[in-house]
Design a binder for these strands. Sequence first.
DNA 1: AAAACAATTCGATACTTGTCGAATTTTAGC
DNA 2: GCTAAAATTCGACAAGTATCGAATTGTTTT
Lengths: 98, 98
Amino acid sequence: MKDKEAKALVKMFKALSHPNRLQLFVEILEQSEAAFEEGQDCLASTIMEKLNVGAPTISHHLKELVNAELISTERKGKFLTCQVNPEAMKRLGVFFAR
Amino acid sequence: MKDKEAKALVKMFKALSHPNRLQLFVEILEQSEAAFEEGQDCLASTIMEKLNVGAPTISHHLKELVNAELISTERKGKFLTCQVNPEAMKRLGVFFAR
DNA sequence: AAAACAATTCGATACTTGTCGAATTTTAGC
DNA sequence: GCTAAAATTCGACAAGTATCGAATTGTTTT
């Protein structure tokens, strides 16, 4: 395995290696799946209520997920919407398919 | 997702979230794949030469991989053999298959 | 039994990081 | 413009952890 690829994987795993961030990621994942029916839902505001942490912490965690390229975010006016990055899912899926 | 399942996943991700441990895991993974031809190879001794860390550190990292149920170990006399846990691979594969 | 080798345990240390409060920025609605 | 709401930035602190050296345990070999 190339060093570059290993680094990318480490970054992703690290991003998912904390309870709050994993939950954050799963929420976004499930929201994405449910996004067929309704419009995409926002986050920091919506999810902050589910997780028991403050806004600064959510912001920090989201940035790490983005930095690991697990999700991407988009500003929609006052809100911030999040989407799972399909590339990342595929990449990780392949890694564990042996 | 159940809390118990989330905790297990976090443990696995944390175990893979460090460069040396990921490399360790990948080495074991590749060794397992190559184990059809030859006999299973041992580790701390063999792998320690590839990774640039001391024996105590390897021992510590291996314990974490075992604790996360990503691998299992078996004593073979003086040596310690490692095998990837297929259950874990499947579990993680499913998680990213969406 | 003695020496050599593989691995583990134990403490200590340096570094990383999750969280918060306070202050700041950005956008919406009045 | 002013106020409220959503999100970000900043600084600080507590907790966790990767690594090492030294000492220890267990096993093989001579």
